[in-house]
Design a binder for these strands. Structure first.
Length: 861
DNA sequence: GCAAGGTC
């Protein structure tokens, strides 16, 4: 029996499609990466009985990057990134092992049907899948077709079954347009980012961003925020005047009337109107009207609308809202949360999900009533052909979900119920008055039936007092006419919700990437989120955008993306050659880049105003080994030392504190050592600023401290303070922290393992001898006389921390506090058993070399 | 260390 391999874009879709096509009779198993599943069943294909294997990828299989050597920032001129630097496709997520997985499942298959999302990205993934899988599939007989593309516009039985009988071919041109987009984004983004970052970081000490990035989506996103900032800055308040009239409605009630002229900007004219109306004792009714109006029920929920409401009403940022929605989705509470569609498919079961909510403590009454009286037809929305709108999939309580997840779920559910509720109907009554020559109006709203606003109370028509019944010709006594002086006020900073709307309108990013771009400009410190989730640009953000405006406004205008996309569409439609479009567009941006580099002084003038030069920043900390003058410690990201005399900058490890280390010097370069530490329970180690930036030995990496230095005789090096291989990670070595006393610690120089050794020792040294059992270096410890744990009156003991019975009792293994939970190994272990899971120390630098001089010769570059 | 696009 022949086998047909079928591939969808994500695991959830593979499952739904397989369920539809197999009519529920499939067998499922997990794939080798643990994320993708394989669903198998038998059926007919091109007239023969076959075995179907339906599986999926996880988005893109591959990602584009430069060849390794072009990722060295100090060695590559960013201008080279436009053409010379070659790119390669790498596996997008090596952990998923997607190519291997596809090949295992595709081996020996005879046909392949591609069920990737029906957009350009999906078409591109088709070819990524084919590249992986075609080489291992059975060779086709000369003329037989083996590759098929299923095109569907929704995940419904009819659509999927129709797609299966009308299989086509993958569209190479659409895929190529994505290849072009990837290459353009990569080359342009990286070139500008690297240039800006290096240029400004080399000049200023308080930029407060470790990266000055540029991108065709993030830069216009920032542009929107700064545009609003500029409007606020240039706003000049104007004074205007308003007439306000009050008439007596009943005995004890008066009506406030709005002036039909709304406002005037000339005080004298306003005064004139006031004078003419003030004399009048009566207001005459000129007309009355009563209109029934409706407030429409909402459209079905898509991603960007969910993000807007999450930000404006729930106070949740888009990134966070998306993460929360994803969790609700994977736990089965809501449907797939990434969709542009606001229209329920015709076959969508609206009553099923509604029934599930019929006993919910918060909205049972509304739901029961809807079920009894019949639901309303949802409004016709937009069908993007991707996924159905976001809806609840099962009932959940506040206690079950808790906190933020609950609030988002509650909103999604209320929104869903609202879409199948009735519109809110209300009566709008208007009375038009004349007081002397001037006209005034009074309006009131009364709710006829609340409809969907019952489930979305925040949308309800505000309660207003009903207007008195009257008719043309009636008169009311004027209680008061007064003139109010007011001022026009500037707009406020852009809210996240407004920004999302702007991005959507200009086609910046997609439903899935909009939160990422907004997050980017926050993390890079271009904007800060203020109260009400308003985005206020920082000095850095403002200077960048103003600088682009000055040099080349196209770099920041939202059209930068759409202009390129127009070109890409020509590729997709087969109207233009991929190479030509790519070459031409790169050429345009290469020129823009060179012009930008030549004109950078224009942006620099703005930088100068807001930021201080390196030499004027920071506090003197440690001495330079070259000129022996003090270098300044610049704490702002990225933290570094700067020698203004030598005009050199030395980067330091981030996320920790830096102190001078007892004025001790590195024997190799005479730089004063500094001590890096990460919080009270964390780790610390000495570090030579010069070695850390220019590793002296071949096996040392950039950015490391003395605890990774293989200098054979320096008292701070790994060779002198190393004890033995780490108990958890592959490559690390446990090194004595010489500054940790009186609570002595040994810490791994790679991972976050920390062992607390001796509490009451006043001196701990690493001995030249090693343990006979495990080869770890012995520790030579002098305990405090009064609190020595040693038997008798002993204060001195030498032994192996792992094997010595006295020391074993004193060692406690921990993980450094400040490390990310992602990188934590297995849970905390107490008191090490003899040799448990530990390999003997045998790596270079771990043990004390026997012949120091030969080792020295081997290590020096 | 960099982009933007998929998805987990």
């Amino acid at each position: 029996m022949k086998t047909v391999l079928m591939v969808a874009e994500k695991p959830s879709l593979a499952q739904s499609i397989a369920r539809i096509l197999s009519r529920g009779s499939m067998s499922s198993r997990k794939g080798l990466n643990g994320t993708c599943s394989v669903h198998e069943y038998t059926g007919t294909f091109t007239g023969q009985l076959v075995r179907f294997k339906m599986t999926s990828v996880c988005g893109h299989v591959m990602t584009l990057d430069f060849l390794g050597k072009y990722n060295k920032w100090d060695k590559v001129d960013p201008a080279e990134l436009f053409s010379q630097a070659p790119t390669e496709k790498k596996e997008a997520n090596p952990k998923l092992n997607m190519v291997k997985f596809l090949q295992v499942e595709g081996k020996g298959c005879d046909y392949i049907v591609l069920w990737l999302d029906c957009d350009k990205e999906g078409e591109n993934i088709c070819f990524e899948v084919l590249d992986a899988v075609l080489p291992v599939m059975n060779q086709a007989h000369s003329s037989e077709k083996t590759v098929f593309r299923a095109r569907f516009s929704s995940i419904t039985d009819t659509d999927i079954c129709t797609a299966m009988v009308r299989l086509g071919e993958p569209d190479h041109n659409e895929a190529l347009s994505v290849d072009a987009r990837q290459e353009l984004d990569l080359r342009i983004g990286c070139a500008f980012t690297r240039f800006q970052t290096k240029y400004f970081q080399g000049k200023y000490g308080n930029l407060d961003s470790s990266l000055i990035s540029f991108g065709p989506c993030q830069t216009p996103t920032l542009g929107f925020c700064v545009e609003r900032h500029d409007k606020i800055q240039s706003f000049k308040p104007e004074t205007y005047w308003v007439l306000q009239a009050k008439v007596d409605a009943d005995k004890d009630r008066s009506l406030l009337l709005d002036w039909d002229r709304v406002r005037v900007f000339d005080r004298e004219i306003a005064q004139m109107f006031l004078n003419t109306t003030k004399l009048e004792k009566e207001a005459q009714v000129e007309a009355t009207s009563r209109k029934e109006k409706a407030k429409q029920r909402p459209l079905a929920l898509n991603t960007v609308e969910m993000l807007r409401v999450a930000s404006s009403s729930l106070g949740m940022g888009p990134q966070h809202a998306m993460q929360t929605a994803e969790r609700l989705y994977t736990q089965g509470y809501i449907s797939y949360p990434r969709t542009e569609t606001t229209h329920y498919p015709e076959s969508f079961d609206l009553k099923g999900p509604l029934r599930q909510q019929a006993n919910h403590p918060y909205w049972a009454d509304t739901v029961k009533q809807l079920l009894a009286e019949g639901i309303n037809r949802p409004r016709k929305g937009h069908d993007a052909g991707d996924h159905p709108p976001i809806t609840p999939m099962k009932s959940a309580t506040e206690a079950e979900l808790g906190g933020e997840a609950w609030r988002l779920y509650e909103y999604i559910t209320r929104h869903f119920i609202a879409t199948i509720s009735h519109d809110c109907k209300y009566l709008q009554s208007t009375i038009s008055f004349r007081i002397g020559p001037e006209r005034f109006t009074c309006t009131g709203k009364t709710v006829i039936s609340p409809g969907f606003t019952e489930i979305m109370p925040w949308q309800s028509v505000p309660l207003e007092e009903s207007l008195p019944t009257c008719q043309r010709g009636d008169t009311f006594a004027v209680a008061e006419v007064k003139m109010l002086e007011k001022q026009t006020s500037p707009p406020d900073y852009l809210t996240e919700a407004e920004l999302i709307t702007l991005m959507e309108k200009h086609g910046i990013g997609t439903d899935a990437s909009i939160p990422v771009h907004i997050n980017n400009i926050c993390q890079r410190n271009y904007v800060v989120v203020e109260s009400g989730r308003r985005l206020k640009p920082t000095n850095l953000g403002i200077v960048l955008v103003h600088g682009y405006y000055k040099i080349d406004a196209e770099l920041v205008l939202p059209t930068i993306r759409s202009a390129v996309e127009k070109q890409l569409n020509l590729i997709a439609q087969g109207k233009a050659d991929y190479r030509q479009v790519l070459g031409h567009t790169l050429d345009v941006f290469k020129r823009k880049f060179h012009y930008f580099v030549d004109s950078i002084a224009g942006m620099d003038e703005l930088m100068e105003v807001s930021f201080s030069p390196l030499a004027a920043t920071g506090k003197p900390l440690s001495r330079c080994g070259k000129c022996h003058r003090f270098m300044k410690y610049i704490q702002a990201k990225p933290s570094r030392l700067h020698c203004s005399h030598c005009d050199e900058t030395y980067t330091l490890p981030q996320n920790g504190t830096i102190k001078l280390y007892k004025e001790l010097r590195c024997p190799l370069d005479d730089f004063e050592l500094v001590l890096w530490s990460s919080g009270s329970r964390g780790k610390s180690y000495p570090l030579c600023p010069y070695c850390s930036n220019h590793p002296p030995f071949r096996d040392m990496k950039k950015g490391t401290g003395c605890n990774e230095c293989t200098h054979p005789t320096c008292q701070h090096s790994l060779s002198m303070l190393g004890i033995g291989q780490c108990v958890e990670c592959e490559s690390g070595v446990l090194v004595l922290d010489p500054t940790s006393g009186p609570k002595w610690r040994v810490a791994c120089n790679r991972c976050n393992v920390v062992a607390h050794c001796f509490e009451n020792a006043h001196r701990v040294r690493v001995s030249a001898d090693t343990c006979g059992t495990c080869e770890a270096a012995l520790l030579d410890v002098d305990f405090n006389k009064a609190r020595s744990p040693l038997p008798g009156d002993g204060t001195q003991h030498t032994g192996c921390v792992f094997c010595d019975p006295i020391f074993q009792e004193l060692v406690e293994l921990k993980h450094a506090a400040s490390c990310h939970p992602m990188h934590r190994g297995p849970g905390r272990r107490q008191g090490r058993g003899r040799g448990r899971g530990r390999r003997p120390a045998g790596k270079p630098g771990t043990r004390r070399p026997k012949d120091k001089m030969s080792a020295l010769a081997a290590y020096f570059v």
